[in-house]
């Protein structure tokens, strides 16, 4: 399996904090894997994701995506779903599809239209007029409609109802190519457990564990959710 993402001794210290948000993170994500980035609140998951997307600058260390530092080249192959809603509210879904098609060569408009139809999202309505759940679904549709090499999804199912969660997870699995990978952060481990190939446990900015889900189940004799609760018990 070819290497898609590599971080080396990655450190991030925010200006207003004495403790590093990320401390010496070295990890590799190969192609064709769905990787869960799991940890409690404030463990550094979103910071790591933002560094991968070039939204934060590392204090030290490096991030490489297919050998490139975060920049125009890496952003052309990474599809990012942030943990917050950030699409411009004055546009319609139709205009948004055009916007994505203009900037991303890998944007699959047909796929986006199919998903919009399945979730009954009106194409001509202004985004700001949509419900919170619909906005989140729309944002996920845009991210998953790209034929990207790496999908970085920050809490993709946190704000949607359980029925929509199943659809979203199905969407994630069915829409990524075998040569692509997904890095997915979530608290809702039981919901995603069945789709994950590997997991990264992170706490206080440090990696606690990097392993395949299968190996955890074999060695620990319990589900990933149960093991997570055990490791991160308060």
């Amino acid at each position: 399996m070819a290497e898609l993402l590599r971080t080396e001794h990655l450190v991030k210290v925010y200006d207003n904090m004495s403790m590093p948000a990320l401390d010496d993170i070295t990890l590799t994500i190969p192609t064709g894997r769905i990787v869960g980035l799991l940890g409690p609140n404030g463990s550094g998951k979103t910071t790591l994701i933002k560094l991968i997307n070039g939204l934060l600058q590392p204090t030290s260390g490096s991030v490489l995506i297919e050998g490139n530092r975060p920049g125009p080249v890496s952003k052309a192959v990474v599809s990012y779903l942030p943990d917050r809603f950030c699409l411009p509210g004055d546009r319609t879904a139709e205009e948004l599809m055009q916007f994505y098609a203009d900037f991303y060569a890998d944007f699959d408009r047909e796929r986006a239209e199919t998903m919009l139809g399945s979730l009954q999202i009106e194409r001509t309505a202004r985004i700001k007029g949509l419900s919170k759940g619909t906005k989140e679904k729309l944002q996920l549709i845009m991210a998953m409609s790209r034929r990207a090499r790496l999908y970085v999804l920050d809490e993709p199912i946190a704000g949607v109802d359980p029925a929509a969660r199943d659809y979203i997870l199905k969407t994630i699995i069915s829409n990524y190519q075998p040569d692509a990978s997904i890095l997915l952060s979530t608290h809702l481990i039981s919901d995603v457990e069945n789709i994950l190939d590997d997991v990264i446990f992170i706490r206080n900015g440090r990696i606690l564990l990097c392993s395949s889900v299968e190996k955890i189940r074999e060695e620990q004799g319990k589900s990933l959710d149960a093991y997570f609760r055990e490791v991160f018990a308060c």
């Binding site: 952003k75 950030c86 699409l87 991303y104």
Partner: peptide, 13 residues
């Protein structure tokens, strides 16, 4: 702002 998450993840410098 929030839109910055879209702007800065576009494949542009």
């Amino acid at each position: 702002g929030e839109e910055g998450y879209v702007t800065h993840t576009l494949p542009v410098s």
